[in-house]
Design a protein around this nucleic acid. Structure first.
Length: 224
DNA sequence: CTCCCGATAT
DNA sequence: ATATCAGGAG
């Protein structure tokens, strides 16, 4: 007698992995209001903020964009100033030469090909110079309320490996695995919650397993 | 794989 | 001193 109870999801996880349902339930109760923490008001703001977020904390990005978004409102504004001027405006986020160049290239692409508008599909977004799948998935989810893929950033990549959900270090390959393992309606919320947990508890350097409620079933938990 | 790069935690 | 921070390109 096969009793398929409606709330129990059966996924093909590797042996010994942290069950997906436990993570969904536990992280939902720990971080009920998990969301994207970069400040923005327009899709273009979000695109620029997310480009600046590479290898930089959200807090510092927000400190920089507070003034940046007053000064630069449209794609045209970013290409109107000199490279050097934009570099100084984004300097505290690190990688400032590359980021200024990326922002200008992305804006020039939008002006030339899309009338200065940020597109609403993953396929169109990843054509923008400097925009990979992580940035594209963030813009889709937070600016347009669309879910086409699973956000895999440094935190998601690290935690899903620790959970035993995948062995893939490559973000795009890990994303494919996650899309196969997890129901689509959970993708956006779960990604945000994993990131919160990755920042607060399951940190990169020395994870706080002693205070982690997932540790009892986590294959990577260290008891000390 | 390396490079880009400043700021902070360990 | 060194690893790491909501990455992506060459």
């Amino acid at each position: 007698m096969e009793d398929k109870s409606q709330d129990t999801v059966t996924f093909a996880l590797p042996e010994g992995a942290l069950p997906i349902q436990i993570v969904l339930d536990e992280l939902k109760s720990l971080y009920p209001h998990a969301r994207y923490d970069l400040d923005f008001s327009t899709p273009l703001d979000l695109l620029v903020a997310t480009l600046l977020a590479a290898q930089c904390t959200d807090e510092r990005v927000n400190a920089v964009t507070k003034d940046l978004f007053q000064k630069y409102r449209r794609a045209e504004d970013y290409v109107a100033v000199s490279q050097e001027e934009l570099e100084q405006d984004v300097r505290p986020t690190g990688f400032y030469r590359q980021k200024a160049k990326q922002i200008r290239a992305a804006c020039q692409y939008l002006i030339t090909n899309l009338n200065g508008e940020v597109p609403r599909t993953l396929a169109e977004l990843v054509k923008i110079p400097g925009v990979g799948r992580k940035t594209a998935n963030v813009i889709l989810g937070s600016a347009f309320g669309v879910t086409e893929g699973f956000i895999v950033d440094t935190h998601v990549g690290r935690l899903v490996k620790r959970f035993g959900w995948t062995q893939q270090s490559d973000a795009v390959k890990a994303e494919r695995e996650l899309m196969r393992l997890i129901p689509q309606q959970e993708w956006l919320g779960l990604a945000h919650r994993i990131i919160y947990h990755g920042r607060a508890v399951c940190v990169a350097r020395s994870p706080r397993c002693a205070q982690c409620t997932l540790a009892v079933s986590c294959p990577s938990a260290t008891n000390r």
